[in-house]
Amino acid sequence: MIRLQQDDFNVTTLVEAAKSRETGAIVTFIGIVRDDGIECMELEAYHEVAERELAVIRDEAMKEFPLHSVDIIHRTGPLRVGDNIVLIVVSAGHRKEAFLGCEYIIDRLKQTVPIWKKEYLKDSSRWVGGEERHGHS
């Protein structure tokens, strides 16, 4: 499953759905709103492109590593400290490829998928700087 959504996700449901008789390892990554002195944050996305790029990253990961399944759910809209932002569920036959696949996916997501965060502090707000490479390449 690849999806952008406002609602929270159910981790247990997705982990159970990722299991098969061949599954030996499932690695999950959950990104969470950290308290950096903020009141809340707003996530914005270029929806149609973001979902397409998430699917590309899933396909890249499955080509690079022997994974059985990949699910990525990214939330948009207003979020508070402690709220879930993103869930990645990677299933594989063995732990090593599951860990590597999951790390690959979150690193690529942060570099390329058009999603932005605006943090709201008590008296101000700020856009979060990204990890995308700058410049003409």
């Binding site: 492109v49 990214h74 998928v113 965060k117 990890e131």
Partner: peptide, 10 residues
């Protein structure tokens, strides 16, 4: 044509 700053998801 879309225009935006560096992305910051995740």
């Amino acid at each position: 044509l879309a225009i935006f700053p560096p992305v910051a998801g995740g």
